[in-house]
Computed example of a mutant assay.
Amino acid sequence: MNKQPNDGIVVVLRRERRTNTVPYGTGIPDAVRDTVVAFPFNDKEATESILREHADTLAAVIIEPVMFSCGCLLPRDGYHELLRELTAELDVVLIWDEVMTGFRLGPHSAQGRFGVTPDMTTFAKVAGGGYQMAGFGGRRDIMEEIVPPEGDEEQTWDSSVFHGGTYNGHPTSAAAGLKAPELLESGDVYDHIERLGDKLFVGSQEVADVVGVAANVQHIGSMGQIYMTDHDIHSYRDTWHANEERFADWWLEAAGRGVVFGTPSQGERFFTTDSHTDGEIDHALEVAEEALSAVNHPYGD
């Protein structure tokens, strides 16, 4: 059996595509583990079977619309459409974790790009121009749960969900949060970063093929990742075929030449920004090719 992380949980995937959950790290009580049921991303048959089996005890399904927590795992074959229909049928709240995709895959985030509306959504720093910022929203009937009821103050938190935060009113983050959407909607930001994203990631696949390094480049819009494998990337387990050591060596070779592609972990991702230029992307691809050649022929043979 192999371990699979899923937003703070390690999932054990058996051959029959059923799952167990175990704590991702120390300090997580078994009682918390017992409240979680995991299901395999992009596997529609297994997902439906698992959710139907546990429907009577499920409060919500929480998922990244694009699994950037393991590099860049894209939804396939109408997976989100099925999940939306299924959770609606089973009366289970569908929550999209758009911490990575929010406002980066378009002005309406991943849900606008895929045409799927979850019941709740979480956002993070992109909504504040990179400053400390987080937010969540959803259906009115769900959001009203955090509204304190009128009446006896001592009974307030017994009948509503407490919500608070240290930085909720931070003036810099709040100002950035108001301004960032204006800037995103006022210009050609998305056209620019996605055009450069296509150039960077498609070009990365091309240079890997030229050098002869097994690579599978996955991306959407301005974000993506290079998996050091020629295996198809359909599920998280497919990423296990990637050569993590080769990726780290390639990353270090590129960083030594002045270009940083995200982090040295294949479980992360990298992306283009509005400040990038065509010339910088051209240079990045030249360095990527040099670094790939270096790891493919470490001794210059």
Rank of each mutant, 00 (worst) to 15 (best):
N6H: 07
D56L: 10
H192S: 11
H219Q: 09
C72E: 03
L82T: 03
G212N: 12
G102K: 01
I50R: 00
E81C: 07
S49I: 08
E244R: 14
H219M: 06
K179L: 11
D198K: 14
E144C: 11
G300T: 09
E64G: 03
M143Q: 10
Q225N: 15
K125W: 06
P75F: 00
G187M: 10
Q4M: 06
C72P: 04
L105E: 02
D209T: 04
C70K: 02
V37R: 06
S160K: 08
T26Y: 09
T121D: 08
L200A: 02
R237G: 05
A174G: 00
V12C: 09
P171S: 11
G112Y: 15
F114P: 01
E185M: 13
R18I: 06
Y131G: 03
S204Q: 10
V207C: 10
E98H: 07
V126R: 07
N216C: 05
V189W: 14
E16F: 15
E194D: 08
G164T: 06
T117P: 02
D158A: 11
I220Q: 01
E48C: 04
R14C: 06
G135C: 06
I281R: 04
A110Q: 01
M1S: 11
T47W: 03
D249S: 11
D34W: 11
R140S: 04
L94G: 00
G27M: 14
R84T: 01
I62E: 05
F271S: 02
R84E: 10
F103C: 06
L285S: 06
G137V: 03
I142L: 13
I193F: 09
E245A: 11
V10R: 08
H283V: 00
I9W: 15
V36P: 03
G130F: 05
M100F: 10
F41M: 07
G221M: 05
N216K: 14
S235T: 14
E268N: 08
T121G: 06
P107R: 13
F270G: 08
T35V: 11
H276F: 13
N296V: 03
V202Q: 05
H54Y: 14
V260M: 12
Q266N: 04
P40Q: 09
M228P: 04
A124C: 12
M100E: 00
A59T: 02
F261A: 02
D198T: 08
P65T: 03
E64L: 04
L285T: 05
N2Y: 09
I220V: 14
V93Y: 13
A55W: 02
F123P: 00
T35C: 07
W250G: 00
T117N: 09
N243C: 14
L184K: 09
L292G: 05
R33C: 15
N6P: 01
T263G: 05
N168V: 12
G177I: 01
V189N: 12
Y79A: 07
T26E: 13
H231E: 14
D43F: 04
G78R: 03
V11G: 01
G256T: 08
R33W: 15
I142G: 05
L200D: 01
V211A: 13
N168R: 15
L178K: 04
D43R: 05
V11K: 08
F39I: 03
A60T: 06
Y299G: 12
V93R: 09
A208Q: 07
V259T: 06
W240G: 02
A110E: 00
M143F: 07
E289Q: 15
E53P: 08
K199P: 01
G203V: 00
L74M: 10
L86I: 02
A176Y: 04
E85F: 10
V22L: 15
A31V: 06
D238H: 13
